[in-house]
Every structure is written in structure tokens, then in C-alpha cells.
Design a protein around this nucleic acid. Structure first.
Lengths: 344, 344
DNA sequence: CTGAAAGCGCTTACAG
DNA sequence: CTGAAAGCGCTTACAG
């Protein structure tokens, strides 16, 4: 097969007319044969398919979309591509849409509202069938409004507008999960080191921690320590904490990164994890969680599932069976490793 | 403004005919006015624009594309979305295409050839103007072939076919860079701990390391140690290494993860970094490199630039000024931190 | 400066 | 079973 960058001798892509001409049938018949629609004689269909194959005919989806009003495309509007959180969501959505069925337009607004508006316009101009908006944190974000002619679903960051459809991780339930696990591991002197207080994720997790401690008749040791979402902070905070409260036996870390810092300090202080101190964290970022000493017990936010759900909501809305508006909170799951339960 | 999910009272999106009717002009004139083309009286243009605004007219890009033969879309065919490497490339490409100008179809083949073919077909059916194929490693990958009617550029993983256009990191030069830096830091007893030998990246970096050592009249201490790209391996390998060669004063780590493991072991062994042992690694994965003790000197592969270049190649090919085929090797850059040069 | 007409590639009633 | 015709939403020569 020679190098052919056009598909036909004429220097342009093969068209249904080309196929019809070669097969000696009308455009209408060629169309029906290709699409398996209408009553077409088996022999005729055969001829058409052969002709199509011969000239590598690829139907032009643009023309089809123009007719049936659906493009089979969806826009993914994110504000933070580099973020580790949007990627699994994006994968889940891509997954749910299926290979070759629905295609996803990826748009990264870089956290810039102007850029987001540009992208939104471009998406509408291309007649996407729906839009998924993926935020970079779980803090509510401004709504795109209701003047958008296609369904919109907000993932990770919920919309500020309660009449929009949003799906976000249930961080409060996650905080409960963390503490309940520590208690189940026999811990009762539990402290919390977490990220920036301005983040809803930090607040929600802390609230869940408090809920669960209260239910168990326990109190947090010290106050929740808010600062950076970093290993550095994990190291520094845990050093401070143990100076003040040497008998802590359980720590909830706001992220795997923070937990990694905590583990470093435990090692420096000669405290054994999990024997002396059990550590549970959030994110279940595998590459961090499975390479530490010991490995980290962590709460996975099920982001890929979150992406799949967002895609499903879009489908439903397109099919007219729209979900009830509001914020849906997706529970996370506890992944148990060596930082809370010793390996034999 | 009321909740309007359609754009017009008729329950469908506003059309140029609607605009023309309201403005009291012909379709042709409306088109020219909207596009700033042709000679249209200022007053007429004004009326048309007002009408368009009134009914929130958004031109249907599908129809335009059908006419001019270009869609302003590009396909991004990746095999590994979760990989940290494809994301910056993807961002760079998205960046180069600009907000709202060209839109990117994201397709993740999950490393499955069948799925890739499905996605490829879908992209062609949607008449993308070009395709960027982003591999998950720097190992050459099968070509998509030359029967594709649009330009194709391979990023990160080059194509096996030298007549394709490929851009890949220059890992050999990176290996040189690493060693030259260690030598500049006064080190002469240098060892290398790296990832799986089956990876071109591992081999190329090792080759560059050997080149630079040879040029300096030095020899590697021991042999390059190949195994997992993990912290675990970094810890274990460096422990073995120092047992055998206690006087090593410089280590090239094949990745930041491996380097993190090396740092852990140095700390366990009581060796001070960088005073006793300097460590340089690859990837410059910030979240790992800037949170270690000390921070990591690392070689950044300039992946975002790689993505931008790939996008540029696509543009050029569309404009008919195609790049010469072959593999282009993009040099990395050394980012110096505390693991090779002590902070004051 | 304005508009009627043809056409981009395809599908879908509707006749035959 | 097959095909002529209209039409999806838009643009572009070409007349006027």
C-alpha cells in the first residue's frame, strides 16, 4: 500500500457519492447499505460495502451530526490539569463514554475565568452534547449558569448553585472512617495534622474526625493542626505535637504527603509505626502510599468512580432522564496497609 | 433571565436564518455581517449583530467545518493517562493550541491496541485536522502507518518508523548532564541506581552517564544497578552499594522516586547529603523533589515544551510546511537543589 | 451594498 | 427493493 494521505486519487477524502458511483447505486441506497438501515438487497449491500472498502470510505461524522442534532461529543472543562485529582476523574469519565462512542473535548482553563469562558464558547460552538466541569478542589465554584443549552455536571468541585447537578467526595464521612478505623485498632489518643484551613476538604475531614470521636466519647488530642498540604508540614507538625503530647497513639493525616512527613518524624523520634503510633491519611495516592516505611493506610476518594458517575449523569440528562439537582456526596473507601496494622 | 436550555422559544438552538429573519436581511448578508466579511453597510451589520445577540446566536461550527474542510480539532491519542509523563505533554499541547482556537479530543487507549484503533477511527470520522500520539515511555512504539489522511506526530514514545515525525526526551544527554554536574561538584566516585533495564530511558541515561565518565577519565563505581522505578529499590540498592563501596561520593538515581529511597538509606547510614554523598536524579517531579531532606537536584525533561513542540509540528504540517521526518531529541535541563549543593 | 443559488456530506421521508 | 428530492446550518462566488 503506497503512502496515501488523502484516501482517494482526487486528493480529498472519499465521500459517500464516490462509493455510490462505484457501486452503481444512488446516494440514498449507499447510505442505507452502509448503515444497515432500510430494506436493501443483500447483493446490493455487498457491492456498496466493497466499494466503500476499496476507497477507504470513512463516513463524515460532521455531516451526520448536522442532521441528527447530536455530535456524540462531550466537553471536559477543567481548571487544573496537572492536579492529581482531575486525572482519575477524567479517566473515569473517558471510560464511561466508551472507546469510539462518545469523544471528549479536553479544555484546561488554568484556573482563569476568562479562559474558561472562551473554552465554554468553543464547546458550545462545536455543539457538544454535554459538559462536565471538573474543579481542582472540593470548594464550591461559581455556576456556569442555566443559559447553557446542554446538560452540565460539576465533578469534584460542586457548583455554588444548588439547582445544578454536582458530585463531590464525601470528606466528612471520610474523616469518620479514619477515626473509626483508628479506634478499631485500639487507639484512643488521636491527633490530626492536615492542610490549609481555607480548603473545604480540610474542614470537612476535620468535622468528620470530630463527629466520630464524639460518638465514641473521645476527644481530639490538641486541636486539628492546619497548614500546608506538604511532607514538610507533616514532619514539623508531628515533631511539635509529640513534644507537647508524648502519649499520642493515633494520627489522622490530611493527605498522604502529610502522612509521609509524619512517618519521617516518627522514625527520627524512634516511635514505631504502627505499634506505638498508628497513622491513617487521605487520597490513597499509590506511589506515595505504597513506598513508605511502613506503607500507608489511606482513604481513597474513588475519583475514577466519581468521573464515571459524572459521565452517567450526562448521559441520563441527554436521554431526558435527568438526575435531581443538588450535590451528591460520594463516600470514600478505607485502604488498609501497614501504618495502622502491622504486617506479620 | 429565566432557565433556558434551548436558546430559542422554538426549543432548538438559534440559527443564522433566525438572525437573518429578525434583522430583516438575507442569509448571505447575515453571514457576512457576523463574520466581518464582504462589504456590508455599517447599519446593516449593526442590526444583524443585535439580532444575533438578542437570541443568543452561536454559529454552528459543524456546518462551517463541513464547508471549509477544517474542523479546528486535534486528536490526542494517549496510552496511559494516569502516567505523570503524559499530563505535562498534554498541557503543553493544549497550551500551544490556545483557548478556544483549536480543541483537543482526548483519547486514552489504556495501552490496548484494539482500543487505540477504535479511537483512531473515531478521530478520523470526526475529521480531526491532526493527531498527536503520546506514549507512556520513551521506548519506540508501532507506527499508526501512513494511510492516515491527516498529519501525525509522536510525542515521548517515538515511532518505530523513521519516516514518521517523533519528539522524545534526550535521555542520553540527560545522563551526561547528571554526571557532569556531579564532577563539577567535585565528585569522582560515582555510582548509578536506576529503573528497569528493559526501558529505553534506563539504558539511554546509563549510556549518557558512561559517556560523560569516560570523557572525564573516570569509571563508574560498580555497574549500573537496574531494577524497579521505586523508592524501595532506591533504598535497597543504595544499602547494597555502600556495603560494597563505602567510599562512593556521588550517585545518579534513575528517577526522583529512586533518589528518595537513596536519601532514606543515606540518613539511615548516617551519611550526609550532599556533604558525604551528592545525589542527582531524573524527572524533576516537584512534589517529590522539593519535599525531601535535602531537596533533590534533578533533570527536568521539559515535557511541557515537548507537548508544545508536538502541537507546533501539527500546525506546520497542516499549513503544508511539514517538519522533516525523523526523531527529534529534546534536551532536558538540570534543576539544582540541596542534594548536590549545600544550602547556606 | 444585498440576495438568490449552489453546495459542503450526509440522512430521511416519500414515491415508484 | 431503489432513487429523486428536500434539508441539516452555514459560506461563497456571482448577479444585480
Amino acid at each position: 500500500m503506497s503512502d496515501n494521505r488523502t484516501g482517494t486519487a482526487g486528493g480529498r477524502a472519499a465521500t459517500l457519492s464516490d462509493v455510490a458511483k462505484i457501486a452503481g447505486v444512488s446516494l440514498a441506497t449507499a447510505s442505507k447499505a452502509i448503515n444497515g438501515r432500510g430494506e436493501v438487497a443483500a447483493a446490493t449491500r455487498q457491492r456498496v460495502l466493497e466499494a466503500a472498502k476499496k476507497i477507504s470510505f470513512t463516513p463524515n461524522e460532521l455531516a451526520r451530526s448536522l442532521i441528527n442534532g447530536r455530535t456524540g461529543t462531550v466537553g471536559l472543562l477543567t481548571s487544573d490539569l496537572e492536579g492529581r485529582f482531575v486525572i482519575p476523574i477524567l479517566m473515569g469519565a473517558e471510560d464511561a463514554f466508551g472507546a469510539g462512542q462518545v469523544n471528549v473535548f479536553l479544555c484546561d482553563a488554568r484556573g482563569d475565568a476568562i479562559r474558561e469562558q472562551h473554552h465554554l464558547n468553543a464547546l458550545l460552538t462545536r455543539r457538544v452534547d454535554g459538559i462536565i466541569v471538573v474543579g481542582r478542589s472540593t470548594d464550591p465554584r461559581p455556576s456556569l449558569g442555566h443559559n447553557i443549552p446542554v446538560p452540565v455536571v460539576y465533578a469534584y468541585a460542586p457548583s455554588e448553585d444548588p439547582t445544578d447537578v454536582s458530585i463531590t467526595p464525601d470528606n466528612r464521612a471520610g474523616g469518620r472512617l479514619a477515626v473509626e478505623h483508628l479506634i478499631a485498632c485500639g487507639r484512643s489518643k488521636i491527633a490530626m495534622i492536615t492542610g490549609e484551613a481555607a480548603y473545604a476538604a480540610a474542614q470537612d475531614r476535620a468535622a468528620g474526625v470530630m463527629d466520630a470521636l464524639g460518638d465514641a466519647g473521645l476527644e481530639l488530642v490538641g486541636r486539628p493542626m492546619f497548614s500546608e498540604w506538604s511532607e514538610h508540614w507533616g514532619r514539623d507538625a508531628s515533631a511539635m505535637l509529640f513534644r507537647q503530647f508524648p502519649d499520642i497513639d493515633g494520627i489522622v493525616a490530611g493527605s498522604d504527603q502529610i502522612a509521609r512527613g509524619v512517618l519521617d518524624t516518627m522514625r527520627d523520634l524512634g516511635r514505631e509505626v504502627p505499634h506505638d503510633v498508628a497513622v491513617v491519611s487521605f487520597d490513597n495516592w499509590e506511589i506515595l502510599a505504597t513506598n513508605s516505611r511502613p506503607e500507608l493506610t489511606s482513604i481513597d476518594a474513588n475519583l475514577q468512580q466519581l468521573g464515571r458517575m459524572a459521565a452517567t449523569r450526562i448521559f441520563d440528562a441527554i436521554d431526558g432522564t435527568a438526575a435531581a439537582p443538588g450535590v451528591e456526596n460520594l463516600p470514600g473507601r478505607l485502604v488498609i496497609r501497614g501504618s495502622t496494622i502491622a504486617r506479620r
